[in-house]
C-alpha cells in the first residue's frame, strides 16, 4: 500500500469516525445488508448510525491484466424510523496492462487508491417486510465521481440512482427474498478529451438469503445490468449470478459476495469467455462489506 493510499484511507476513517458520534446516536440498530449487491427494505430506526466499508474487486477482461478496486466508506443514519440518509466517500484504484481494454489496447495504468468522489443516499420505507404483505422502500442516490470505473480516466461524472426495493420474508423471517429495480441516468465529461457522454443504466437484481445458523446467513444473488448511451438503444447487457455469506453480531456484521458474469452481450472476439461481455464489465466481481454499529 502506498503512502498516498494510506493517508487517504486514514482520512476517510477519521472523518467518519468523528462525524458519527455527533449525530445524537440514541440507539444501536442495524440495517444489515444480507447481500452484497441487492438492497433489502429495512431502514435504520431513528437515531441509529452505522459505518460501512465497501470493497469491490473487479477482475478478468479475457486478455492482459485488469484489476479495478472500488472502495467506499459509508456513514448511514436513521432520521426517522422510516427514513435514513447516507454519505459516501469513494476511492478507486486500477491495474491495467497488456491490452486488457478492448477499446484502447495500448492503455496501461497502475494507480493506487485515490479519492474518487462522494455520494448521498436516501431511503424511505413505505411498508414493513415484518408486518405488511410486502416490504417496499424507495431509494435515491445522487453521486459524483472523478475516475472512470472501467478505464480509470479522469472525468467529472454526475449520476442519480433511483431504486425500487421489494422484500418478502418466509418461515419466521429465516428466508428473505428481495428484488430491486434500478434506473440511473449519468452525465460525464472526460478531462483529457473533453468528450461528453450521457447514458442510462438499467438494473434488475434479485437475492435470496437463508439463516442457516444463529448469526449466519447463506444466500445467492443475481444481477442484470445494461446501459443505454444518449438514453436511446441498449449498448450492452450482462448477467451475473453468485453466492454470498453474511454474518451479523451485536456490534458489527459482514457480507461477502462472489458475483461472476454468466452471460453478456455483445461478445468481444478473440477473448476468453465467448458468452461474456468483457468490455464494460469483468469476468469476476468480489465484494466485501463490513459494518460497525454505533
Amino acid at each position: 500500500m502506498s503512502y498516498q493510499s494510506l493517508v487517504f484511507r486514514i482520512a476517510l476513517v477519521t472523518a467518519l469516525s468523528i462525524t458519527a458520534p455527533l449525530l445524537n446516536v440514541t440507539q444501536a440498530q442495524a440495517d444489515e445488508n444480507l447481500w452484497g449487491y441487492v438492497y433489502g427494505t429495512d431502514t435504520l430506526p431513528k437515531g441509529g448510525t452505522e459505518i460501512y466499508n465497501w470493497l469491490t474487486l473487479r477482475t478478468g477482461k479475457g486478455k492482459g491484466t485488469y484489476r479495478g478496486w472500488d472502495e467506499m466508506l459509508e456513514l448511514e443514519h436513521g432520521f426517522t424510523d422510516r427514513f435514513q440518509g447516507s454519505f459516501y466517500l469513494k476511492g478507486r484504484s486500477h491495474r491495467i496492462a497488456d491490452g486488457a481494454l478492448d477499446e484502447d489496447p495500448s492503455r496501461t495504468l497502475d494507480r493506487s487508491l485515490e479519492f474518487d468522489g462522494v455520494n448521498l443516499a436516501f431511503k424511505y420505507n413505505v411498508s414493513s417486510v415484518y408486518k405488511d404483505l410486502l416490504g417496499l422502500s424507495l431509494y435515491l442516490e445522487p453521486s459524483y465521481s472523478r475516475i472512470h470505473r472501467v478505464t480509470g480516466e479522469r472525468m467529472n461524472q454526475f449520476g442519480l440512482e433511483t431504486k425500487f426495493l421489494f422484500q418478502k420474508n418466509f418461515f419466521d423471517d429465516q428466508l428473505a427474498l428481495a428484488y430491486n429495480f434500478t434506473l440511473e441516468p449519468e452525465w460525464s465529461k472526460f478531462k483529457a478529451s473533453g468528450e461528453r457522454e450521457k447514458e442510462l443504466e438499467l438494473e434488475h437484481t434479485v437475492g435470496a438469503s437463508y439463516r442457516v445458523l444463529p448469526n449466519w446467513f447463506l444466500g445467492i444473488e443475481g444481477r442484470y445490468h445494461s446501459e443505454y448511451p444518449d438514453f436511446k438503444g441498449r449498448e450492452h447487457g450482462a448477467y451475473f449470478l453468485g453466492p454470498n455469506i453474511h454474518y451479523g453480531a451485536e456490534k458489527w456484521w459482514f457480507t461477502f459476495t462472489y458475483l461472476p458474469q454468466i452471460w453478456g452481450h455483445p461478445h468481444i472476439p478473440n477473448r476468453g469467455g465467448s458468452n461474456l461481455h468483457l468490455g464494460e464489465h469483468e469476468r469476476h466481481e468480489f465484494r466485501l462489506k463490513i459494518a460497525y454499529v454505533f
Partner: peptide, 9 residues
Amino acid sequence: CVPALVATA
C-alpha cells in the same frame, strides 16, 4: 485497514 470492527456478541 478498516476501523476496529470486531466485537463479540
